[in-house]
C-alpha cells in the first residue's frame, strides 16, 4: 500500500504542486516538502513524502560497489 511513485516537479502552486509521473501530470500535496520545478520526488497517495536525489543514488551505489569488492577479495 505504501507504494511510492517517482516523479518530477513541473510547477508549484502554494501547498500543492503539479508533478510529472511518467508522462501523467497530477496535482499533489506538497505541504511538508518544499520543492522547486525540476526536482525529483516520491509521491504516495497524492502527497509528496520525500525528495528523491539521483546524485545520492549514484553515490550510494558506488559505495556499495566498493563494499562488494571488499567482500569478494
Amino acid at each position: 500500500m505504501c507504494l511510492g511513485i517517482p516523479a518530477r516537479v513541473v510547477k508549484t502552486k502554494g501547498v500543492t504542486a503539479i508533478v510529472d509521473m511518467g508522462g501523467v501530470l497530477k496535482e499533489v500535496d506538497a505541504s511538508f516538502t518544499p520543492v522547486k520545478p525540476g526536482e525529483y520526488v516520491i509521491v504516495h497517495a497524492g502527497i509528496i513524502i520525500s525528495k528523491l536525489d539521483p546524485k545520492t543514488a549514484e553515490e550510494t551505489l558506488e559505495l556499495w560497489k566498493e563494499i562488494l569488492q571488499n567482500l569478494q577479495s
Partner: peptide, 16 residues
C-alpha cells in the same frame, strides 16, 4: 487505511 506514509496524506488537509 494505511501506515505512517498514508496517514500523512490524511493529516495534512485535516490540520490545514
Amino acid at each position: 487505511v494505511g501506515f505512517e506514509t498514508t496517514m500523512t496524506a490524511t493529516a495534512a488537509p485535516a490540520v490545514q
